[in-house]
């Protein structure tokens, strides 16, 4: 009996607040735009709510999904989100790897402090970390002031409200997620393997490519997924650092919902985003399972 309660409480909670809402999104994405309930119904009572849901059940079709393929905006936004997420994941990897490598080679007694320094930004508000770049990248911001002062440029660059700013924002905010798994694999790496490679005639660089990188593969893969998956649906970074030309699907969904108040289309956008995410999530899960089995 006690066991039943123990299972039932979290189970029912997740069913009611995770699975059921998702089924509702699916239903609404299949319903007609014209049938959309008004965005604001503070007087909405329970019976009208059920009536609303029953209406959605009445007329299900793929009209909204057809609409997504017809209007350029959506597929361009999906493609551009995929591209931005991919490119910024690669950039994050390039920035994170040397840091993780340096941490793993640092004297033993420094490592806990270095770890803490990487984790600290993770506990700091995401919004604040994104905001901190607004003052740096703006027209009269520090980066422009610095570059003007050194004489590299003669006119301030427009960085804020461009895709460049979005890349910087993603690399900056997701950097700890890439550093930590790579550091974890590099930390366990047996230095004598590299020494052996060098003794056997490898140059430092080829020992790095032939020994260190393959042995840290699991950390690299885990880090890439941890950056890529949330970056794909990112909303805060493109809306604060990006410009009007920055197309990311999280922002499109938000605007579809809050500005255009088109709930069925917003739901359809969400369903397609999730279908796209299923591929990397399943791959990530497989990779984690393989890794756990390898450790056994």
């Amino acid at each position: 009996m006690r066991r039943l309660i123990l299972i039932a409480v979290p189970y029912l909670w997740l069913l009611a607040l995770f699975l059921v809402p998702f089924v509702i999104v699916l239903k609404i994405s299949l319903s007609d735009t014209a049938l959309a309930i008004p965005p604001y119904t503070p007087t909405l009572d329970l019976s009208a709510g059920w009536q609303g849901i029953r209406d959605f059940f009445a007329e299900l079709d793929f009209e909204n999904f057809v609409w997504l393929t017809q209007d350029d905006l959506y597929w361009k936004a999906y493609l551009s989100s995929l591209w931005i997420a991919l490119a910024s994941t690669a950039m994050t990897l390039l920035v994170a790897y040397p840091i993780a490598y340096g941490m793993a080679r640092a004297p033993e007694e420094w490592r806990p402090t270095l770890m803490m320094l990487v984790i600290l930004p993770f506990w700091t508000s995401f919004l604040i970390r994104v905001y901190s770049w607004m003052g740096i990248l703006s027209q009269e911001g520090f980066l422009n002031q610095f570059l003007l002062w050194t004489g590299v440029i003669s006119d301030p660059l427009q960085i804020l409200n461009t895709n460049t700013a979005v890349y910087i924002g993603i690399v900056y905010t997701y950097l700890p997620f890439m550093i930590l798994p790579i550091y974890a694999t590099l930390d366990r790496l047996d230095i004598s393997l590299i020494e052996a490679a060098e003794d056997l005639g490898c140059s430092r660089a080829s020992a790095f490519w032939l020994v260190t990188v393959p042995l840290s593969k699991n950390g690299i893969i885990a880090g890439c997924f941890l950056v890529f998956i949330p970056a794909l649906g990112e909303f805060v970074i493109p809306s604060l650092l990006g410009g009007s030309s920055t197309l990311m699907i999280g922002k499109v969904l938000w605007e579809e919902f809050f500005s255009n108040r088109d709930w069925p289309v917003a739901s359809a956008v969400a369903v397609v985003l999730l279908l796209i995410l299923v591929v990397p999530i399943v791959l990530f899960q497989k990779n984690q399972e393989r890794q756990q089995e390898a450790e056994k």
């Binding site: 995770f18 809402p21 329970l46 709510g49 949330p230 649906g233 899960q285």
Partner: peptide, 24 residues
């Protein structure tokens, strides 16, 4: 348990809102 960890926030938010409105 694992799905919400990787679910984009916009989707979690949207789906919960639609639930709350649905049940009034």
């Amino acid at each position: 348990i694992y799905a919400p960890l990787v679910m984009p926030e916009v989707i979690t938010g949207l789906s919960l809102l639609l639930l709350f409105i649905g049940i009034g």
